Simulated scan of single mutants.
Amino acid sequence: MTRSLKVSPEYIQKVKSALQANGYPSQQSLASGVGLALSTVKNFLAGKPVEYLNFIEISEKLGCDWQKIADKQPGNGTSSTKNETSPFITGLPIIQPHQFFGREKELKRLFNLLKRHPLQNAAIIGKRRIGKTSLLHYLKSITTAPIEQLRPNQKSDWLQNPEIYKWIFVDFQDSRMASRENFLGYILESLGMQLPNPCNLDNFMDLLSGNLRNPTVILLDEIGVGLQRCPQLDDEFWETLRSLATNQTDGNLAFILATHESPIDLARSNGHSSPFFNIFGYTATLGSFKEQEAQELIASSPIPFPEDDVEWIIQQSQHIPLLLQILCREKLFTLEDRDDNNWREEAMEQIQPFMHLLD
């Protein structure tokens, strides 16, 4: 099956028009919004093949039905995402909502903070590789995901009017976000606003103060990197963001950050004293899945696992999501290859680098 898709010729003009209509003043702003290379966005808009997951992500950002606009000529298959994607994800954040499992308690609390006015800030805390980034992506995408792209009975109605929300994902591992000007410009472009000249804190505040009409959530991933390696993101910068959220946007702005320790402790350990880091009134601490959540993930295998293997996976993983994913992947490989010899030994070797998650 093909692993790339392209826009059908009759829809190329439509997707180009959708750029401005969905608040993206440039191809670069769309690329930043989806976290992809500019060349990928250019290929998409030109009707050239792009990797199918990227095709779906860009289509959703532009408000287009990816199955409708995809070229259906021979050689350009449009198999469903569920058939194309790996059932168990072990090395990357989970982007597609139908592949995300668990965290029901955290999702309920986080969306409760965002569905009422004023929006409230939250911190997601957990060990590295516990699923913080995947949760941020899920928050951003689940409420507007097409129902046909979700699992049966997968909850998506967390917000009453999800279409009015603006979600901005910031990855501080992206070196471009180390620049104050780039960060501010990225936020403004994501909101469909024209960049001021110069794009500094004063002009940024002037543009957003009192002008943020839609509920907006800024998701800050790997904020520890921003504090440790980005000298331009100093206390003045963070204090400006705090003022924006608390006093300047009529309750329409919230920050959700992901970190491996409390925001206040993280800031102090990196020499920051900004009060920005004490506005996070709710903390979601990620750990293991509940038993039911772990069972649901295992049951998603396209080939059912024998009951004794399910019990062994549960026992060895102790419900830790990454370990569950790795063990399930290894079991599925053996079923697909019809070679069940020593699979548990190989699986234990694969999870060895991540055993610290059990501590």
Rank of each mutant, 00 (worst) to 15 (best):
I58Q: 02
Q160V: 14
D309C: 08
R338A: 15
L220E: 03
Q352N: 03
H272L: 12
N214T: 07
K166W: 01
K132R: 05
G77M: 11
S190W: 03
L114A: 02
V41N: 08
E346A: 14
Y138Q: 05
T78R: 13
S29D: 10
S288M: 11
R129I: 00
F255T: 00
E10L: 08
E163M: 07
P146D: 03
A46I: 02
L30Q: 07
R180A: 13
A122W: 01
S269M: 04
I89D: 07
N342V: 00
E330I: 09
E51K: 15
S269R: 11
P25A: 04
D202A: 14
D171S: 14
F44R: 04
K82N: 08
L335K: 03
D309P: 02
Q173I: 11
R116T: 07
Y52N: 00
G251Q: 00
I89P: 04
D202V: 10
I303A: 10
K166T: 11
A31L: 02
D157F: 00
V217T: 01
H319G: 06
V170M: 14
I320T: 11
Q160N: 14
G75N: 13
P321Q: 08
L335F: 01
C328Y: 00
P87H: 01
P74G: 09
N22W: 12
I314M: 15
Q67A: 13
A37P: 01
L358I: 09
L113M: 10
S179Y: 04
E261M: 15
S288N: 15
E10H: 12
N182D: 09
N247V: 12
S301A: 12
T2R: 15
K61L: 11
V15Y: 07
P215W: 00
Q27S: 06
R213S: 14
N200I: 01
E51C: 03
S4M: 13
F204T: 02
G23D: 08
V7C: 00
F183Y: 06
F44M: 04
F183A: 03
P321S: 10
H137R: 12
F289T: 05
N270V: 02
H356I: 08
Q232M: 10
T85I: 13
R338L: 15
Y11D: 01
F169V: 02
